[in-house]
C-alpha cells in the first residue's frame, strides 16, 4: 500500500459519499445519470466477488463493503425514494448502457489475466469502470445541468483518477514484477473520458454562472 493508492481510495470513496449526501439532502437527482450510477454499482459487485474468498486486509475488506453499499445506496435512492425519483431526468438519461455492459463482458472474455470466473469478472469490472461515466457525460451534454454534480464531487472523482495513475507509476518503479496492464491501460482510458466529462462540466458550470449573473 502506498500513499497515492490510499489517498486515491479515500478520494474515490469521498466522491461517492458526497454524491449520495447531495442527493439525499436535496431530495433531488436532476442532472445525475442513473445509468452511470447503475454501472458503478455493477463495477463494484463484479469486482469484489473475492470479498468472501480472498482476505487481503481489514482495510481492503471494509472498503469493498463500503463501496458496494454506498454505490447501491445511490441507485436505490434514485429508483425507490419517492421524492428523489420524481426529479430524475428519465427522458434525457437515455444512453443504452446495456450495450456498454455487453461490450465490456465480451471484451473481458477475450482479454483477461486468467480464464477463471473471478478473473473474467474482474477484467469486466475494470473495463466497465472505464466507460461507466459515458451516460453521465451524454446527459451533461444534453442538459447542461450541474445542480447536483457539485464541484466537490467532480474534484474528488478527478483526484481519484490522478492519484491512481501516480500509484501505478510509483509501483512500476518500486516493484520488480508490477504488471497490471489491464488496470493501467483501462485506467488511462477512464481518465481520458473523465477529462472529457470535466470539460463539459466546466462549460456548463461557466454558462450557469453567466446565466445566474444578477440582472
Amino acid at each position: 500500500m502506498n500513499a497515492f493508492r490510499l489517498a486515491g481510495d479515500i478520494t474515490h470513496l469521498i466522491s461517492i459519499l458526497v454524491l449520495l449526501l447531495k442527493i439525499y439532502a436535496t431530495k433531488s437527482c436532476s442532472g445525475i445519470s442513473l445509468k452511470t450510477q447503475e454501472l458503478y454499482a455493477v463495477v463494484f459487485l463484479a469486482r469484489y466477488l473475492d470479498l468472501f474468498t480472498d482476505f487481503i486486509s481489514v482495510y481492503n475488506s471494509v472498503m469493498k463493503v463500503v463501496f458496494i453499499l454506498s454505490s447501491v445506496a445511490i441507485v436505490w435512492c434514485m429508483r425507490r425514494h419517492r421524492a428523489v425519483k420524481r426529479s430524475y431526468d428519465k427522458e434525457l438519461d437515455t444512453f443504452r448502457h446495456y450495450y456498454l455492459v455487453g461490450a465490456c463482458f465480451v471484451f473481458a472474455l477475450l482479454v483477461h489475466e486468467k480464464f477463471t470466473f473471478q478473473e473474467v469478472f474482474w477484467a469486466f469490472s475494470i473495463y466497465l469502470e472505464a466507460v461507466a461515466i459515458i451516460p453521465q457525460l451524454v446527459l451533461l451534454q444534453r442538459s447542461g445541468n450541474v445542480d447536483n454534480l457539485t464541484g466537490q464531487y467532480v474534484f474528488f472523482l478527478g483526484a481519484y483518477r490522478a492519484l491512481y495513475i501516480l500509484n501505478w507509476i510509483y509501483r512500476y518503479f518500486t516493484e520488480a514484477k508490477f504488471s497490471r496492464w489491464i488496470a493501467c491501460i483501462s485506467g488511462l482510458v477512464q481518465t481520458a473520458l473523465y477529462a472529457d466529462f470535466f470539460y463539459y462540466y466546466f462549460l456548463s458550470w461557466k454558462n450557469n454562472a453567466k446565466l445566474n449573473l444578477p440582472a
Partner: peptide
Amino acid sequence: ANADSQKDEL
C-alpha cells in the same frame, strides 16, 4: 499467493 499477483487494489 504473494500480494502483488493478488488483486490487492480496490
